[in-house]
Write a protein that binds this DNA or RNA. Structure first.
Length: 680
RNA sequence: GCCGGAGUGGAGAAAUUGGCAGACUCGAUUGACUCAAAAUCAAUUGGGCCGAAAGGCCCGUGAGGGUUCGAGUCCCUCCUCCGGCACCA
């Protein structure tokens, strides 16, 4: 939808130019996720279990030149959730996704290839004396150059096969480890030994440096690989300080170093620091941090998306469209060919343009932006959508932003919510926003499961509400869905209980329109109205819609049996409380009872916390932890009076049975607990 | 495998965050109204035991242990289910 409005998406383009200036947008050739069915690239976040987020087609890797946003520059800040009221689940998902690992990056020289080194990342530099071989990802750029003639055919075949294997299959942990020796050797800079260099697809090109030192004694994957190919397994970390050979399995815990030269005897933690420091002194490495998070691939070979404001000129290269020329308008006449590549590439009027720098004929970028770019900042447009000078009017925005209440499905946990946090921080650093986080308070509505699967409009797994609306009305259906259970939990869809919501609304209708029978004021009912107002108000703020409705049901039952002015005022309050839950019915009743204006524009009912607590309360009396009697006393009764009243109870005295009282505990307005010594 | 969340009646669920377990709703049973049914209203509805009744007693929140005057809630061990990530070096 956004793509229909150039005045919206021009700001996607404006932001792109700002990020480009800052070095936060860049173009690079990299192995990227490719959906063969949609014929477009995808960001990592849009590959779900190796499948395309949109069409569930297995994704493959392809080397392509694409545009990226440098979200990794904010990885550390994105790990922080200071001051945010967010569900634990979402925080953990984002933290896992970002995947920060501390360790060291170290280089080993390739034997017989002067100047060539293999850089690798490890979280366990303490195990470096046990690195008996190295493994490169099949896509690693060094592979072709170092492979020996004898191994060339085998290596080429393996690389080819890896390229043609779907990502989901390649990264399956259950898959047996496979690989091929390159015939080349590296020099372990710590043991001084020559170690063979292998390629294997269990090493990922996109993580760390795409290469590892393999320590089979202390890594399960390396152990499995070494066992399969008969490579040396050398213990260098011992849980008890003594040596154990041969190892039946990798020992991945901490311990003290053995067979590790000058570092022998150190603890794992100490050795991690000392070995990284040693690598730094020798100029071959340093302590380092690696993230699982990859930069955000924003190019798409799709029609519906914001055109990327770039011109490719034979003379000048990649040239940004000047800000004054924005927006670059998405043509309306593109054809959906269903074939590969961006549809824009087939429109000569769009593609052919003049270079903004030299004026010579040039070609426009034909990729469009990921639509998650659109949704990453829309909240800043809300405060003043008419303002044309910027995407947001700061004077208005200061009043409304950041967003204090945000809700959405859990499916946004590491897509929209991560992108929006990133864009917020970028705009802050550009000087356009004055806060660090776009959404200070977040709640996820639960998933409704229908026929065993998530009920989803885009997936077509829905039950149309029409039949329920026709039979019970939209308010009943809405109320029932809020009453089924906690809104944040979701539920299996089952309309069996909808009659209850229907009956409740009918009862409200009846009592609201009946002329109230005469009678005196009813202080007990007045208090209940107050109490209900309190409960509905706090439950609403906490998203506890089910219990708010339960409280209103109780009030409606009490009003049904009441009379007099208390009843009439209670009904008025109930209609106001019900308005957010049953908007149509409450509006109708509001008018039928002579109310003016809309019920939805009235003040929310007030309550007096003191009045809520007044009246009589029931107090439980326990003897040695068991309930023995119940007392009714005025709320706020003193501890002493409640205690003596409790001890005066016959039932309590029977339970005490003459034993000595050790202590009594009084919880105001709630209970008295009597503790005795051993029964005499 | 790692991380997160959750296990409470026949069903959906409550429980003021350590204070009467099962509010509210569905379903079921019984009664009132009706020629009858529907609708509506009322009563009962965790299990077991004692009692003619009024009422009383015991057990009970996935399992076992612990802390506490008191545990659905806190701690330890385990089981099951749901969700996320997963060959991330």
């Amino acid at each position: 939808v956004v793509t229909c409005y150039p005045e919206y998406y021009r700001w996607n383009q404006w932001m792109f130019l700002k990020l480009l200036e800052r070095g936060l947008a860049y173009r690079a050739t990299a192995p990227v996720n490719w959906c063969p069915r949609d014929e477009t690239v995808l960001a990592n976040e849009q590959v779900i279990n190796g499948l395309c987020e949109r069409c569930d087609t297995p994704v493959v890797k392809k080397d392509l030149t694409q545009w990226f946003y440098k979200i990794t520059a904010y990885a550390d800040e994105l790990l922080k959730f200071d001051g945010l009221d967010w569900p634990e689940r979402v925080r953990v998902m984002q933290q896992n996704w970002i995947g920060r690992s501390e360790g060291a990056e170290i280089a080993f020289a390739v034997d017989g290839h002067p100047g060539q080194t293999i850089r690798f990342f490890t979280t366990r530099p303490d195990t470096i004396f046990g690195a008996t071989f190295m493994v490169l990802a099949p896509e690693h750029p060094l592979v072709a150059g170092i492979t020996s003639e004898a191994q060339r055919a085998a290596v080429t075949a393996y690389v080819e096969e890896a390229r043609n294997t779907a990502e989901i299959e390649r990264t399956s942990a259950e898959r047996p480890k496979t690989g091929v020796a390159t015939g080349a050797y590296a020099r372990n800079a710590f043991t001084g030994e020559r170690v063979p260099i292998w390629i294997a697809d269990y090493v990922l090109a996109t993580y760390g440096t795409g290469a590892i030192m393999a320590v089979p004694a202390h890594d399960e994957r390396d152990f499995a690989f070494a066992t399969a190919y008969g490579l040396e397994i050398r213990e260098v970390i011992s849980p008890d300080g003594s040596e154990h050979a041969p190892l039946a399995a990798a020992y991945t815990g901490p311990g003290s170093l053995v067979r590790s030269g000058a570092f022998t005897g150190l603890s794992s933690d100490e050795a991690k620091r000392r070995i990284a420091a040693d690598a730094r002194e020798r100029g071959i490495g340093d302590a380092s941090v690696t993230y699982r998070l990859r930069d955000w691939l924003i190019s798409r070979q799709r029609y519906w998306g914001t055109p990327i404001p770039i011109v490719h000129c034979d003379g000048c290269g990649v040239v940004p469209v000047p800000e004054s020329d924005l927006p670059v308008v998405l043509p309306r006449d593109a054809e959906f060919t269903g074939r590969g590549g961006s549809p824009l590439a087939n429109l000569p009027d769009f593609v052919n343009t003049a270079c903004p720098r030299c004026g010579k004929p040039a070609k426009r970028e034909t990729d469009t932006m990921d639509t998650f770019v659109d949704s990453s900042w829309y909240i800043y447009r809300y405060p003043d959508p008419k303002d044309a000078s910027c995407f947001m009017n700061p004077a208005v925005g200061r009043h409304w932003l950041p967003v204090s209440r945000y809700t959405g499905g859990i499916e946004h946990a590491i897509l929209h919510l991560l992108y929006a946090r990133f864009v917020c921080k970028v705009l802050r650093d550009l000087g356009y926003l004055w806060f660090d986080e776009p959404f200070t308070h977040l709640r996820n509505q639960g998933t409704i499961v229908f026929k065993g699967r998530k009920m989803s409009k885009s997936r077509g797994n829905v039950e149309a509400p029409d039949a329920y609306v026709a039979r019970y009305g939209a308010d009943t259906l809405r109320l029932f869905m809020m009453f089924m259970g906690p809104w944040t939990d979701g539920a299996d869809w089952d309309a069996a209980g909808i009659e209850g919501s229907w009956r409740f609304l009918n009862r409200v209708w009846t009592i609201a329109l009946q002329p109230p029978p005469d009678g005196p004021r009813d202080p007990e009912l007045d208090r209940m109205v107050q109490r209900t107002t309190l409960r509905v108000t706090t439950d609403l703020e906490a998203y506890h819609f089910n219990t708010a409705i339960a409280a209103m049901m109780e009030l409606s039952t009490a009003l049904f049996h009441a009379s007099g002015p208390s009843r009439d005022e209670g009904v008025r309050t109930l209609i106001l409380l019900l308005a957010p839950f049953a908007p149509h019915l409450s509006e109708e009743l509001w008018h039928r009872r002579g109310g003016t204006g809309s019920v939805h524009q009235q003040s929310w009912p007030a309550f007096d916390p003191g009045a809520v607590r007044s009246g009589d309360v029931q107090i439980v009396v326990q003897v040695n932890g068991k309930v023995r009697d119940r007392l009714t006393v005025p709320a706020g009764s003193s501890e002493a009076s409640v205690r003596s009243l409790a001890l005066a109870s016959e039932k309590v005295q029977t339970a005490i049975g003459g034993a000595a009282i050790e202590k009594t505990i009084v919880v105001p307005d709630r209970l008295v607990s009597v503790v005795t010594g051993r029964p005499s």
